[in-house]
Write a protein that binds this DNA or RNA. Structure first.
Lengths: 320, 320
DNA sequence: CTGTTAGCGCGTTCAA
DNA sequence: TTGAACGCGCTAACAG
């Protein structure tokens, strides 16, 4: 493939001049510019981006770390990131980690090696000391409260949201409340767990491990939850479900099993995905697409570390 | 940041030797290797990947074009691609196109400019003449029957599958059959449309435009379908729904509206997503994750163009 | 086993 | 306005 030197020779100018027309610099006479352009056309010239990257030290690539691609929560988040990336002429490198720490480290290393300009971590398994080792190499943006850290972040106050949701259920007359969540650990999950424990103390209810359902990520997991619920002597009368699809699965499964919602069991979802509307699920709206946008903007800003709290909204429907 | 030359100087060897230990080449004495490693440690040496890319002419990056990230069909496909990419030490650059041709062209141009080694197009809006302009720059892999083209492909025989599915419904006693699909055009959609038209001719039924439902992508679209169905004087008695989530939405919406499945309306889904199992939806299994794997392997093979047909399997459950 | 050297393709300073 | 020359950091052919 022809390179800048070939073009220069053929057009009878220096590589510098070619480079100038390539980058729309001033100080190139119109005739030379045209000559260069003509030769480029003739040779079907393609500039080698990697050489540009090497020369400039940036790639216009931004890494995005997600545990799973195939999940509506991350799907919406990535959608927001992708849209904003497009607008700003950045491309995304997707890291699907399955919550394996090595995959996250790979992503961090790509930042270190300058193959990506910055890194957005939508959810992580690795500890802070790991991330801290890489903050010097480029902007890192988290999707969790990281205000006291050396990175940027866009986040929800999960402690507060969860507390409010629990309070809401309590005000509706529920005393025995359980919750379904994706995973046990994780910054956001821990916040929610703490909110739950504190809430129980406040209303003077005992903490029951069996009222918490983990690995609740997809629609199909609703069935397992209802299964377990049916086998309980003293099941919760309300469930906070941190994902609308899982909530929809629970609602569907309840119908099949003759469990009436909200009378027998109240369900409160999270995210306000479209499915929640169709199935009339009361939910806490989290503007994921907008959060994605924000994450990307922080990633390309990179100036200093910023932190943006996003607020949630209760959407009352018919499952509570 | 220290570079290979600094390391060489400090370690008292040549850059070549440093490069050799960097790439695990043989022919490096143990003491020199150790000396180099020690200096690297000391300087916290980071190799500049872009320089490697420039030198080698490859990036270990593979582009993936999808219309939407946030869709279970593409979610599963990308999951398969991502898993296989991980195994082979490739990373993915994600292009979310929203079916805008310009976005697809951007991806093709990144191939042309060698920022990615090859490109997987999961679904496209652009015409073949556009793609043909880029085949010379690197392997392009499509997720549709492209056997007579200058690319590789992994595909389903959608004409055959759709025909079989229609035949199955017909054998179950259905004469008035409609279908729901994502979009009007697109290679796969056209194949299905043709199968549908041919089938109607075969059973001597008139082609009714109102029996076809477009833009049926998500769970929530099921509601609209059922809405339209309810307003028909002479609605179809069976529906082929090319997406299990949309099928699930239809099933759910039917329940709410007192339409009994399968007696009033038979539903046949596609993909065999987990939701289909939970909701007992009869469906055509499409091994998307496996297809994703295959797509990636074709992308990194690149030797010559290969074409792989994937077969589907009917999963009988309770909605037909 | 080791080092010299010539690229890879482009950006950019500096002098003209 | 222009171009020579150097630098970006690394790989690999070749010579020793």
């Amino acid at each position: 493939m022809a390179n800048i030197k070939d073009i220069a020779k053929k057009a009878g100018v220096s590589v510098t001049t070619v480079s100038r027309v390539l980058n729309n610099h001033p100080y190139v006479s119109e005739d030379k510019r045209e000559a260069v352009l003509r030769v480029m056309e003739e040779f079907n010239y393609q500039r080698n981006i990697n050489a540009v990257h090497l020369s400039k030290g940036e790639t216009l690539l931004i890494g995005v770390v997600v545990p799973f691609t195939n999940h509506p929560y991350f799907g919406q988040l990535v959608e927001g990131i992708a849209n904003e990336a497009m607008k700003n002429n950045y491309k995304l490198v997707l890291f699907q980690t399955n919550y394996e720490e090595d995959r996250e480290i790979e992503a961090l290393k790509m930042l270190q090696h300058k193959q990506i300009d910055s890194l957005i971590i939508c959810s992580r398994i690795c500890e802070w000391d790991v991330i801290n080792q890489f903050t010097e190499y480029g902007p890192i943006v988290l999707c969790e409260d990281a205000r006291n850290r050396n990175v940027s972040s866009t986040f929800i106050d999960h402690y507060m949201s969860f507390s409010n949701a629990l309070e809401y259920l309590h005000n509706k007359g529920h005393q025995k409340i359980g919750y379904c969540i994706g995973r046990k650990t994780g910054a956001n999950s821990r916040q929610r767990g703490k909110a739950y424990a504190d809430f129980l103390k406040r209303i003077d209810e005992p903490y029951k491990e069996e009222f918490i359902f983990y690995e609740c990520l997809h629609f199909e997991h609703g069935e397992e939850v209802v299964q377990r619920l049916s086998n309980m002597d003293n099941p919760p009368s309300a469930l906070l479900v941190t994902n609308d699809f899982a909530a929809a699965g629970i609602v569907t499964s309840c119908r099949e099993n003759g469990i009436h919602i909200p009378d027998d069991l109240a369900i409160m979802g999270f995210d306000n995905q479209p499915i929640a509307k169709i199935m009339h699920i009361t939910t806490l709206e989290i503007p994921l697409v907008q959060m994605g946008r924000q994450l990307l903007l922080q990633a390309i800003d990179g100036k200093k570390h910023t932190h943006q709290e996003i607020s949630v909204k209760l959407i009352e429907r018919q499952t509570v």
